[in-house]
Design a protein around this nucleic acid. Structure first.
Lengths: 211, 211, 211, 211
DNA sequence: CATGAATGAGTCTTCATTCAT
DNA sequence: GATGAATGAAGACTCATTCAT
């Protein structure tokens, strides 16, 4: 059988593979670190045989990376859907931060994903390779790019800033909010206030219209 | 012999321990991920016997965490020293970003440190435990806190922002710059421009005096 | 796979586990002390991979203890069978001492077993735990208890002695004979005479009919 | 410096060596098995440096074996002294069992000694070597031999029994009492009754005068 | 004499991966 | 396709012993 690439459409993913993906997400939610996940842990949780994992994937790293990509893709697609109804960037950002809060079950997956994007573990290297192949069509990129694109079309964005700076700045704010959510760094401020301030901060820095 | 706690003054650290710390830093610079570092790798690189590591530390995790804390502490102390001569927050931030660029050898250590702060690996758990014990006297805390404190004393800071939001905002910018430096996210601008924009962004958001 | 408990019926024991049991017995016969047996020694001798041991057992201690219990159980079952044909306690004791002599290959296992029963090694602690769980249905207990029980039924035993004293006395005599066999303590007496005297001694102390 | 042989007169044993001997005994009392004793454990408990052990001994095994021999020798010498005042074997045996009970701290050492006499651990091999060198002048031998000798001189002993059978029979009873004391095998009778029965048993078997 | 830092051989144990069923 | 028994490479950690001070 040909192996899983991680780019399958959700309805093309075999049920046993879905089970593995779910297992990885579940383990992440239980604060199991990626570096401490084993194949038997994943297959055991997925309720399938250990050998089965290798029917679909070539290595442990692939399983985990594909699971993460699947999760992230699912989340961003949902988000993308919901962001469509937002008339401007301000509401989009607010919405996005809110989504992060509401779907707390995926915060761990997103954090794990961000870690892999910026570490040098086997999984990280593998993830970046995969994303390079998809070449800018990666899920997060897509999401942020879409936001930026639609904002640009609407003429909301400052025009003197390079796109890459805008991407970087948005991403960094997302990360700082995730860190706040995940590890409760700083508790003299409510989530609502945090979201409001971050939105404000982004708008003021990247958009023409200040708040 | 009593074990190393990681809070030793730099001149109190035994030479073999220094050698281990250096080895960890070197490995990080060579893009070796923490999750893939082995004790024999570290001691081999340090030029000491494997058993020696356990004369000073109780576990691999301790070795790595103490090495990181040492590196971070060293860097922040140097930075702290240099920041003293800066008359205002603007120059302090600029200086700090410049330091990160100049000491590129420590960027990896800082990234690794940030990862551990926000993952659930053994090392991460251990690091946060240690930092909780030091209770706010951790190196990064100190550095950022000092900057904030001196800026507040000088009346530069906006007074309506909660401390933890300020911390979060500074952190977001640090991450932004590190992502730029380390992983080339947003690399169609020059380092100088990047530093200038980040400084501006911070000043405009957190300080009374805008640029 | 579910782990081995050591209470499996002999024909339920997987072949690789049998191989390990045999390896332990063989090593004991070659005068390898339990405290000096390593897992790789056992698996090497058993002709299986080191990892395989951990498919069936959770620790080295378990391997050794289960191997001993298996050996002892086998021996006592054989003995039990043979003792059935003995009409009275005198012949039973004589038979048993003779069996020990004839099956010299299992003397080492029995000695090792007795040591574990009375030391504080990890293996010893583990063995006693296991036997406590089986609660008096342990092999040696069974054998001695059976002998005592049938002797009592036949009215051979003195009635003024507590059962536990009888057990203790019988066990101690068995041990002293094993020490004689194993380490040749005392060589101015033939095995036959030794057995005869010990039988006599037991009969005279514990039974109504004296010799 | 010439090493310790284990045959030194008690007042010839250097204080640091005494400290080590005491440490070994203390550890035995705390149910630390010989196979799990480490040099640093012993020296740490003795309050001396680890290297010091090797000033006096050539190996860990030597330390432990000499410590045991010292303990056993001390005990048997004390016993020997006290037995002198006993007019006959019956009272000697009673006295001896009482001593074991009173000096419960040495029961563990005696048990350990018996184990080493009959296992194949490094320590066991070493102990038997040493005792073979002393050739029958070993402490236990001495004690038992003295008892037997004086009983024979007084004409108390049966004359038809080989010496090695008498030794074996006495040993069996010692083991019996130790099992009762140490491992509670046969513990539904009181110590007094146990001692009485064992004495009786020995007298009836080995002496002319029965009880 | 006494020490304890240093060492590396050796131990247990885990786990990704394979492959016969 | 699915499985899970089998494996051995690799890793953390221990500890007897040495030796420079």
């Amino acid at each position: 059988m040909s192996k899983i690439t991680g780019s399958e459409a959700p309805n093309q993913v075999p049920p046993k593979v879905i089970a593995m993906y779910r297992a990885v997400s579940a383990l992440l939610q239980e604060n199991k670190d990626i570096s401490e996940m084993s194949v038997s842990m994943i297959t055991g949780r997925a309720g399938i045989g250990k050998g089965t994992a290798y029917e679909y994937f070539d290595s442990k790293e692939e399983i985990i990376v594909c699971a993460l990509l699947y999760e992230i893709r699912t989340v961003t697609e949902q988000a993308s859907e919901q962001l469509k109804s937002c008339p401007d960037m301000e509401s989009q950002i607010g919405k996005m931060l809110l989504l992060v809060e509401e779907h707390s079950q995926c915060v761990d997956a997103i954090m794990a994903f961000l870690h892999l994007l910026t570490d040098h573990s086997k999984e990280g290297n593998f993830l970046r390779e995969r994303m390079a192949e998809e070449n800018g069509k990666g899920p997060v990129d897509l999401l942020i790019r879409k936001m930026i694109e639609s904002a640009r079309v609407r003429g909301e964005l400052r025009e003197d800033l390079p796109i890459s700076y805008i991407t970087n700045a948005l991403l960094a704010r997302m990360i700082s909010y995730l860190m706040y959510q995940c590890h409760h760094i700083g508790n003299d401020i409510t989530p609502e206030e945090m979201r409001r301030r971050i939105t404000e901060s982004i708008m003021n820095e990247l958009c023409k219209k200040n708040i």
